[in-house]
């Protein structure tokens, strides 16, 4: 089914549009067929001053705000290189790991918060990297390694199999209290990590957790090597 969130809830569309265009005078909402795009210049700001600018296009998801916008730098300034977190095949940017979204752009938050938070951080970091500086908050490794790094932080485990079990519980239809806890303590889930699992089920979209689960399973034994992989630390 083709969702057209802008038609289904025109008042919400208008709120999103006004909030973004008020905060960012050079960004415009444009309807391109049944897709809503935000185009124009995105400023990198420090203490109220514009330090840098990027020509951008944000393609809002058909199920916006559930799905993440697809972000592209369209001025040809950023190399299409994995190390710059730009997909070579379509130029889309990966400003964040979708599983981490709740930390930086939680469900229900307006689009303008995405721009002010993770998107601003992404372009600010790009400007620093372009100037020869390190990523200011570090970066996740690419693919399954990055997923592993993220869940290692969240679950505080380096055991891939424990991690996979946690993800199976996070993505399960309804985890049962009598299940053996994912941490392998031997206790039932309800007496061990039930609160953590419930909390992560609330925070992480099931489709994102499922994708991560599949990525870790596909990585298989090679994922063990990931225990050595650390996200590039923040400076």
């Amino acid at each position: 089914m083709s969702h057209m969130w802008q038609r289904e809830d025109p008042a919400f569309y208008e709120r999103e549009k006004v909030a973004v265009e008020t905060a960012y005078p050079n960004l415009h909402f444009v309807e391109d067929g049944d897709i809503v795009c935000v185009r124009g210049t995105f400023p990198v700001i420090s203490e109220g001053q514009v330090i840098d600018r990027y020509s951008v296009e944000l393609q809002l998801a058909r199920d916006h705000p559930v799905g993440l916008p697809v972000v592209r730098e369209v001025g040809g300034r950023l190399p299409r290189h994995a190390d710059r977190h730009i997909n070579a095949h379509d130029g889309s940017a990966c400003a964040l790991l979708p599983d981490e979204r709740w930390r930086v752009w939680p469900k229900g938050a307006p689009l303008v918060d995405f721009l002010k938070g993770p998107l601003h951080g992404f372009f600010l970091a790009q400007s620093l990297v372009e100037a020869g500086q390190p990523w200011p908050w570090g970066q996740w490794a690419h693919g399954a390694k990055g997923v592993f790094q993220f869940y290692r932080e969240i679950l505080k485990t380096t055991d891939l199999h424990v991690m996979i079990t946690f993800l199976e519980y996070i993505t399960a239809k309804k985890p049962k209290g009598h299940w053996a806890c994912a941490c392998r303590s031997g206790k039932p889930l309800r007496k061990c990590h039930f609160v953590l699992v419930s909390s992560l089920r609330e925070k992480i979209a099931r489709k994102d957790a499922l994708r991560s689960l599949q990525a870790l399973k596909a990585a298989g034994d090679s994922a063990i090597e990931m225990t050595e992989a650390k996200p590039t630390p923040a400076t």
């Binding site: 203490e47 840098d52 990966c94 930390r103 930086v104 600010l124 620093l128 690419h142």
Partner: peptide, 17 residues
């Protein structure tokens, strides 16, 4: 200025691919 902005950034995320 960029470093200053990074030090006070709201909700920054680590990029991924």
């Amino acid at each position: 200025f960029l470093r200053q902005a990074a030090s006070v950034a709201v909700a920054p995320a680590r990029p991924w691919l």
